[in-house]
Amino acid sequence: MTVAFIGIGANLGDARQALKDAIVCLAQQVGITVLARSSLYRTAPVDAGGDDYFNAVVKVETSFTAPQLLRICHHIEDQFGRERPFRNAPRTLDLDLLLFGDEIHGDEHLTVPHPRVAERAFTLVPLLELDPALVIPGQGPAAGFLPAVNTQRIEKFSFCQCTRQKAEARDAS
């Protein structure tokens, strides 16, 4: 079994719900156990236009190889209507294999660690929430990359809207 981290993002449709549903889809896969999920974060698109993204990171344990896990992620994206009309296009769901144990892969089909994992607040912040001592294979401690992303806007949200809805209902009465 290997511990892997999967980045989840969306900015089309009900992006927040898509992330919740994607985590359920991952958890339903035989051979994948969801160990933890980060908080939900809203971020501005990086190198793209469009609406803000909702992002999270999921820590999983899996019996699959990295290429197999990536294929499962792509299949789930397809189920959510993911289209790839151009690089960094807005998306209904994006699942990125960020880390796969201490493995390093680099070919035309799979690059792990994800090539931009240390350059994006929307991956680093949730990764460090799940594992503050995380080391990115071949790169070093993840926390060491935070200063380079501190100008990227990232806002923490709750997955559950229950508390806010209860407060709004109470205030309305």
Rank of each mutant, 00 (worst) to 15 (best):
V125N: 06
V60N: 07
L130H: 02
E83A: 15
H105P: 06
D94H: 08
D131W: 11
L97I: 05
A142P: 00
E61H: 15
A148V: 00
E108D: 14
D94R: 08
V135D: 14
T92G: 11
L95H: 12
V60P: 00
H105Y: 15
L93F: 11
G144A: 08
R82C: 02
P90N: 06
V125T: 13
Q139A: 14
I72L: 13
A121C: 01
L124M: 02
F145V: 00
F80C: 03
I104C: 15
L99H: 08
I104Q: 14
A89I: 04
L98V: 01
E108Y: 11
G101I: 12
A143C: 13
V117M: 12
H74Y: 11
E119F: 06
H74T: 05
L70R: 09
H114D: 03
D78P: 03
P141L: 10
L99S: 11
A142G: 05
E83P: 01
L97C: 04
A142D: 02
L93V: 05
T92H: 11
V135S: 11
E108H: 13
P113Y: 03
D131H: 10
R120D: 04
L124C: 06
I136S: 09
V112G: 05
G101E: 12
L127V: 06
P141N: 10
P115L: 13
D78N: 15
E83V: 13
H109F: 15
V117F: 08
L95S: 09
F122V: 00
T92K: 10
L134A: 01
T62C: 15
F64C: 07
S63P: 00
A133Q: 15
T111G: 04
E83D: 12
H74W: 08
L127R: 03
P85L: 01
E129P: 07
G140Q: 02
G106A: 14
L93H: 06
H114F: 08
E83S: 13
H75T: 13
L99G: 02
A66T: 09
A118K: 09
P90H: 03
L69P: 10
L95Q: 09
V112Q: 04
P85N: 01
R87F: 08
T65S: 15
D102C: 13
